[in-house]
């Protein structure tokens, strides 16, 4: 058995079995002719839907929209999260003041803020951006806090011995030592921002974006469009995460390879 599995092309073939079976089952359901088959669009029409979306440019513009929404939210929430997390780790009074409040706010599922934000700001792009930024804020804040608070005392000792002032301590010890966790926080935040973008797009359904298209297609019973969009979401999400991971590795060259 192991000999079979060790050949890469054979592994690939085995891996394709399940998806192939799924597609066959799908096509069979689509052509079965009973009431439920309306939900199953024939495989051919999925290809057609793909071409349709590419031709009218909506697939690309959706991908760009969702991506830019996630990245904007990541930048806003991430920057704020790093600033707040680092500040709270350095100044104890701030920690005592803000910490419990943020902890309490964190308990509410972020998506639950949408109706509230909808009442406050209307159901426009603003509310969406706030939710996406919030979803990026918490992981970066927590990880930045842990990163700075967890800096080992022995490195701070070295700083004391060489007479480091507060600014030197921050620039040369705290920040670089905290960087791995800060980047971890940003990686998590990216994933959360991505999910939050899709979620708010589905829920509010305005503007453009992958989630919006999915929601619209659902009201029109266009399962073929939904499928194309879902696949695009998966691919785009994977690609962005992969690129981010590479970026992280290059920023942390000083770490031993195993980390």
């Amino acid at each position: 058995m192991n000999a079979v599995l060790s050949k890469p092309w054979l592994r690939l073939a085995i891996g394709l079995v399940a998806p192939a079976l799924l597609l066959i089952w799908w096509q069979w359901q689509a052509s079965s002719g009973d009431v439920r088959s309306i939900a199953f669009a024939p495989l051919g029409s999925i290809g057609g839907a793909f071409l349709e979306l590419v031709e009218n440019g909506s697939l690309v513009s959706d991908m760009v929209s969702t991506l830019s929404r996630s990245l904007t939210g990541l930048v806003i929430g991430g920057a704020l999260g790093i600033a707040v997390g680092v500040a709270m780790a350095i100044w104890r009074p701030l920690d005592r003041l803000l910490g419990p409040l943020l902890h309490a706010i964190r308990q509410v599922p972020l998506i639950g803020w949408l109706p509230l934000l909808g009442l406050w700001f209307g159901t426009g792009q603003g509310s969406e951006l706030i939710v996406v930024s919030l979803s990026a804020f918490f992981p970066t804040m927590l990880n930045s806090y842990e990163g700075v608070a967890g800096v080992e005392q022995r490195y701070l000792d070295v700083g004391r011995i060489y007479g480091f002032g507060a600014f030197q301590r921050f620039r040369l010890i705290l920040l670089p030592a905290a960087m791995p966790l800060i980047l971890t926080g940003l990686t998590q935040a990216l994933a959360f921002a991505w999910i939050a973008s899709i979620a708010t797009e589905i829920l509010l359904g305005i503007g453009s974006g992958l989630g919006v298209t999915m929601q619209l297609a659902q009201t029109q019973q266009r399962i073929d469009i939904i499928l194309v969009t879902v696949i695009a979401t998966a691919i785009l999400g994977f690609a962005v995460n992969y690129l981010f991971r590479q970026l992280r590795i290059s920023l942390l060259r000083w770490q031993p390879a195993s980390l």
């Binding site: 670089p176 030592a177 960087m179």
Partner: peptide, 9 residues
């Protein structure tokens, strides 16, 4: 005893 070189430098 532990060299305490900064790993990031």
């Amino acid at each position: 005893q532990d060299h305490r070189l900064f790993p990031w430098m």
